[in-house]
């Protein structure tokens, strides 16, 4: 038994590293083909990101929401629920969160922060409850419902924003009082001067640690993973799979709303339409690459954060959209190498 576990762990590490190397090779060849010098791009990126505290701070700032959203998605993925609706779930939650915060910030001061966050969490959780409920009651795949609900939630937000809540001729809500904010890292150390990285990063790490603990050290986590691995067998073991589906979806969707801590309270002070910039989809790549392991998610999110800011920093050499291609290639190669290693290394069918 011990032996098979280590072999599985080895296989996981093997497939993650092979896919990363393969992706980078494909990207290099691709850059070369379109007439760019891949080594120059790589070098510029590394010096820009790691050369200054600002660069590192920005990479951390970009990684923070990915860790949070990744943990939320991991709750669903561990239970084999393919939640593609994070984009809609987190937008709706963060939207409501920032409205609540700026409406009551005068009366409640800093106390509005936990209240607003709790309400945002509840809204996202509710948005996650719908596909879960439809799945257990009607057997409809969560994939289709969550895709459809992404569009619905964005249209809803757009409506309320444009018609009632946006500051004139913008697509953002009004600014929350400055006192209600999460301190930037630059407050504590001049090293991060100018970057938007804030204390939410440490919250994200703590969240990942807590999620890890729940998955692997509690009976709830055991049940969650059992449902994901083999729903039929779990039912025989007396696990209420329907209940687990609903709980996993609600907690997972709820957690995605916490990215608002980083953007709204840690950075801008308001909700802006399109702030998430496909965060809900990028987080799918982050989570898959980490094999749904929350500790792994910290590292893959940091990698994507580095790539994200790195992409911006090499924009003069090559369009930053190269990072979109990179993310997609990571997803595709991790999936294929997982499969190939399963067939040829673990000899599974």
């Amino acid at each position: 038994m011990e032996l098979t576990v280590t072999k599985k762990v080895k296989a996981n590490i093997l497939s993650t590293s092979i896919s990363l190397v393969a992706t980078i090779i494909i990207l290099f060849v691709f850059l070369y083909l379109v007439g760019k010098d891949p080594f120059e791009v790589m070098q510029k990126m590394l010096t820009e990101v790691f050369g200054t505290g600002y660069g590192i701070g920005q990479a951390i700032f970009k990684a923070t929401p990915l860790i949070i959203c990744g943990c939320g998605l991991a709750f669903c993925f561990q239970a084999s629920l393919f939640n593609i609706g994070a984009e809609g779930q987190l937008n709706l939650g963060v939207f409501v969160m920032s409205i609540v915060a700026y409406m009551f910030d005068d009366y409640l001061g800093i106390f509005i922060l936990p209240i607003a966050v709790a309400i945002g969490f509840a809204v996202s959780a509710f948005w996650g409850f719908i596909p879960a409920y439809i799945k257990i009651k009607r057997g409809v795949s969560e994939v289709i419902t969550t895709i459809m609900m992404n569009f619905i939630s964005l249209a809803l937000i757009n409506y309320f924003l444009i018609e009632f809540l946006a500051v004139k001729s913008t697509v953002r809500t009004e600014k929350i009082l400055d006192v209600i904010s999460i301190p930037k890292l630059s407050v504590f150390s001049d090293y991060f001067e100018g970057s938007s990285a804030n204390l939410t990063f440490f919250f994200a790490i703590a969240l990942a640690a807590a999620t890890y603990f729940i998955f692997y050290k509690t009976s709830f986590g055991y049940k969650l993973r059992a449902v994901g691995l083999n729903p039929k067998a779990s039912r025989y073991l007396g696990i209420n799979t329907n209940k687990m589906t609903v709980i996993a979806f609600m907690i997972g969707a709820g957690i995605t709303s916490l990215v608002g801590l980083n953007f709204v309270f840690g950075y801008k002070g308001y909700y802006e339409y399109g702030f998430s910039n496909n965060l809900g989809f990028t987080a799918i790549a982050v989570t898959l690459l980490a094999k749904n392991n929350p500790i792994g998610i910290i590292f893959t999110a940091l990698l994507f954060g580095i790539m994200d800011y790195g992409g911006l920093s090499v924009n003069t050499l090559v369009p930053k959209e190269i990072m979109l291609v990179f993310q997609a290639l990571v997803i595709l190669s991790i999936l294929s190498f997982d499969r190939i290693i399963k067939i040829y290394y673990l000899k599974e069918k």
Partner: peptide
Amino acid sequence: VIGVGFNLLMAGLAKF
């Protein structure tokens, strides 16, 4: 999952 990856890849490629 492959479909999600392809959507990201093709949209990203066109943008890039």
